[in-house]
Simulated assay, not measured.
Amino acid sequence: MAGMADPVPPPSWRSLRLRVAAFLLALLGLVGLSFASLDLQWGRFFGPQSLARMGRFAGELLSPSLDGRFLARLAPALLETVAMSVVGTLLAALGGLLLALPASRTHAGDPARWRGPSRLLLNVLRSVPELMWAALLLIAAGLGPFAGTMALALHTTGVLGRLFAEAIENAAPEPGFALRVRGVGEARVLAYAVLPQVTPQLLSYTLYRWENNIRAAAVLGVVGAGGLGQLLAFHLGLFQMAETATILAAMLVLVLAVDGASHGLRRLLTR
């Protein structure tokens, strides 16, 4: 028909291959420039003295300490790390949901006046790493698990808030529309139409972040935020490799246990 634009033909196979080849060459060039800009002293790293030191270090790590007094100190630190991850994740889930509601547009006619500022706040919270939050909070709260817990909560609030907002915006609009045409208020629409749809997804996101937070909680103690990390920093600073090996083994067991528990709970939610 007259006035209709001709359809754009799809790119040829030859043109597509040229684009992919150009992209791969550019990527390889970028990798090459990255290596060239770094002062990587491979000769010293793989030299006989370095290999001997690494072998001695590995041998010491393969002999963990099983001293009863040390294990008695390790158990409270282990529980403290778990508590930091649990409380931090729960606070983040609550804060993320409270910020996700104004950060999401629930229907086409929703003005969502606070969407921009809320999303900006979520971006700020998650752009600062947990270690940086912990370092800042240690100045105000001092050493201990409180700073680590709040650092996890602040960073994870930004992550979960964004994920929660996307889940709320992607919920099926039909149940909410059916309630709105009958004059039901937005609060009840959210409670009876939107949240029941997205609750399994929100719980799945929360459990996944708990997996990440148990690893982060084990590391945050390195800057003095309590838990296994603080014990690790202490013994590693004194070059007590046997105790360090035991702490690393406890971290590994803890992470594997939490990963397994979280995976099982997420499978139950998706059934």
Rank of each mutant, 00 (worst) to 15 (best):
P76M: 13
P111Y: 12
L24R: 14
L220K: 04
A112M: 02
V219M: 08
R162Q: 10
G96R: 07
L160I: 12
L97A: 08
R19H: 02
A245K: 01
F70W: 10
T199W: 11
V219F: 01
L120F: 14
A216H: 02
R119S: 02
R209W: 07
R126E: 02
L24Q: 09
F70M: 02
G68H: 14
A225L: 00
A112G: 07
H155W: 05
L138Q: 01
S204M: 09
Y205W: 09
P111F: 08
Q49G: 14
A225C: 05
T244Y: 02
V20W: 15
L71P: 05
L232V: 03
R56Y: 11
F46K: 13
A36Q: 15
L228D: 09
P173T: 01
P9Y: 07
A77P: 04
P10M: 13
A245R: 00
G109H: 06
T246E: 04
P48V: 00
R19Q: 12
G176T: 01
Q49N: 14
W13A: 12
N213L: 00
G144S: 02
A21D: 08
L236N: 05
A245P: 07
A92E: 02
V31E: 06
E60V: 01
P64F: 00
R14C: 08
L78N: 10
V184A: 10
S12T: 15
D67E: 11
Q201P: 06
T270F: 07
G260A: 15
L90D: 06
H107Y: 06
A83P: 00
L66G: 14
L66R: 15
A36C: 13
A165Q: 06
Q201Y: 13
